[in-house]
């Protein structure tokens, strides 16, 4: 009897798994620009529709996580005729390396563009070695 139940259950979990996978596929991955200069690494991400209140930037150990939800003014009863953007949720994570000081990340958001400046730890900044 138990085995029958298990067999009967199986398709359900499979469907759930597929639904989850499909959901994950619809998360938006914001395009990013990343550059490094002498003092810091700067990340710029396009997250149109995201406001400060709906943005989460988290640095935990060696991972930088950026999440946001676009708030878009949509009239009630709208019939979605065509959609290239099929989610309102943004999600992207980056690996941080030890020389970056995650405690001192500066973040700014303007017109849907998120800028993150991650300073390098002072003791690890490149030093010019003088040759005597």
């Amino acid at each position: 009897m138990a085995s029958t139940q298990e067999v009967a259950k199986k398709p359900e979990t499979e469907t759930q798994g597929r639904a989850q996978a499909r959901e994950a596929a619809y998360l938006l991955v914001p395009p990013a620009d990343i550059f490094e200069d002498a003092d810091s690494v700067t990340l710029t991400l396009d997250m149109p529709g995201v406001t400060k209140e709906r943005l989460k930037v988290e640095a935990e150990r060696d991972t930088l996580l950026v999440e946001g939800e676009a708030a878009i003014n949509v009239p009630a009863g709208i019939d979605p005729a065509y959609a290239e953007v099929r989610s309102t949720r943004y999600h992207r994570s980056f690996a941080l390396t030890g020389e970056l000081d995650a405690e001192r990340i500066e973040a700014s958001l303007r017109d849907g563009v998120l800028s993150l400046r991650i300073p390098k730890r002072a003791e690890l900044k490149p030093r010019r070695i003088e040759v005597r």
């Binding site: 149109p48 709208i78 979605p80 959609a83 290239e84 953007v85 017109d111």
Partner: peptide, 20 residues
Amino acid sequence: PPMNVGLTPENVEIYLFAAG
């Protein structure tokens, strides 16, 4: 920029996702 289009009886709403 990517776009979405929605229809209501009164209007056509076009959303262009163009940050910055």
